[in-house]
């Protein structure tokens, strides 16, 4: 077995997100979240429901990044209208990206600057407000930098723990974890991000330097390594083309 890569550590961390999800629709944006959901489906979470990213539920998913047109076994029809119904039903869990995220997990994917005249238009709020209002939401950050982990996000798309507190109607709000190329973060009782584990080879200082707010990683344990079954599934079944290595590069240890 060749050496384990950082991307593979991230992949199993992303898979662990779905461990207790049960029979829900797995929504993912980005390569590693998609890899993680598929790996979970083949290991710890056989009841997960996966889509082709277009209009179908797949009991046997098409190759990564492809749609039902490229193969796989269709088990359901989910045009966009049904997706929003499923979001509202709560039978869904989401792992999205973040262009900015603050210490309470407020997430921005909409734009940078003032919303009336942004300095940089990004993809818009998309479904983030509805996701965080209706079901568990986790975030994936492929490049952990101070530009992403900021004191204050420019637009709150995914709702953070401070904002959700006390809002009647947000009783289903549930932020899970934030997984980055450096670490796994979760939220303390005060609703603030904290370091759950550092990926093998990452120092507390590295996380501190690359976070735009105070985040103490001292004494954090190591993120677990993939086991042999997971490695085989990752390399041979889930992502044989190695798309994961394009999103996160490097070995597990320096």
């Amino acid at each position: 077995m060749t050496e384990i890569t950082r991307a593979e550590v991230c992949a199993v961390a992303c898979a662990d997100v779905w461990r207790d999800a049960g029979e829900v629709l797995a929504h993912t944006a980005g390569v590693l979240p998609s890899v993680g959901a598929r790996l979970a489906r083949l290991t710890t979470s056989p009841d997960l429901v996966l889509t082709d990213g277009e209009a179908y539920f797949m009991s046997d998913p098409p190759p990564l990044g492809r749609t039902a047109a490229d193969g796989g076994v269709v088990e359901g029809w989910v045009p966009y209208r049904r997706v929003f119904d499923i979001v509202a039903s709560g039978r869904r869990q989401s792992m999205m990206g973040a262009s900015q995220i603050d210490r309470y997990g407020n997430q921005n994917i909409s734009l940078i600057g003032d919303w009336r005249r942004p300095t940089r238009q990004l993809i818009g709020v998309r479904g983030a407000p509805g996701n965080t209002a209706n079901h568990r939401t986790d975030y994936w950050v492929a490049r952990h930098t101070p530009k992403v982990f900021v004191e204050k996000v420019d637009v709150v798309c995914g709702v953070g723990n401070d904002r959700a507190r006390g809002v009647k109607g947000l009783r289903f709000h549930h932020l899970g974890v934030v997984i980055t190329n450096l670490a796994v973060l979760d939220y303390g009782d005060d609703g603030r991000l904290r370091v759950r584990s550092l990926h093998p080879g990452v120092t507390p200082q590295e996380v501190h330097t690359n976070t735009g707010f105070a985040l103490d990683a001292t004494g954090a344990p190591e993120t677990r390594l993939p086991d042999e079954t997971e490695l085989r599934l990752l390399r041979e079944v889930v992502d044989p083309l190695g798309l994961r290595e394009r999103e996160v590069s490097g070995g597990a240890r320096p």
């Binding site: 979001v87 407000p129 965080t132 209002a133 209706n134 959700a164 809002v167 109607g169």
Partner: peptide, 13 residues
Amino acid sequence: PTRAGLGSDVLTM
């Protein structure tokens, strides 16, 4: 009525 948007800046914008 909808839950979507609660707590977010969609209401600000």
